[in-house]
């Protein structure tokens, strides 16, 4: 009995996740649950961090410029997504700053790890 309810809970969770991501890709979607929207922003940030890390490592982009460009691109993508694509009233979430800093540090760490590893692997002769 308990197993059944557990498995139905699991499938419900997956369905909820699917619908959230579908909603995230639709312009001007309704977001009654603030947490859901902030979760979308959080995971989007993580993906951006890893993708930018990969690109910066492949190019390779070096120095302070790489860090600065990451911050700018990361903030700009989220800003446009929130304001232009979803047309969210930022005041509902405590201002743009709250949205901008959502998951930023984790995304920054993920970006640094990917950038450093791809850069080391592709552009540094393995002499150590």
């Amino acid at each position: 009995m308990s197993n059944k309810s557990k498995s139905s809970d699991g499938s419900n969770k997956i369905k909820v996740c699917e619908s959230v991501w579908k909603k995230a890709l639709v312009a001007n979607a309704e977001w009654p649950d603030k947490e859901e929207f902030l979760d979308v922003i959080y995971w989007m940030r993580q993906a951006i961090g890893i993708i930018l890390g990969l690109f910066w490592g492949l190019l390779p982009l070096k120095g302070f410029l790489g860090l600065l460009l990451f911050v700018i691109v990361n903030a700009a993508v989220i800003y446009f997504y929130v304001n232009n694509f979803q047309s969210i009233d930022e005041e509902e979430y405590g201002g743009m700053w709250e949205i901008t800093k959502e998951g930023f540090m984790t995304s920054f760490a993920g970006f640094l790890v990917t950038w450093i590893i791809v850069y080391t692997g592709l552009h540094i002769a393995d002499n150590l």
């Binding site: 910066w56 490592g57 390779p60 982009l61 070096k62 120095g63 302070f64 790489g66 860090l67 950038w115 450093i116 590893i117 850069y119 080391t120 552009h123 540094i124 150590l128």
Partner: peptide
């Protein structure tokens, strides 16, 4: 004492 990676920034 082992260098595990090279940083792309200073």
């Amino acid at each position: 004492g082992r260098v595990v990676a090279k940083l792309p920034f200073y």
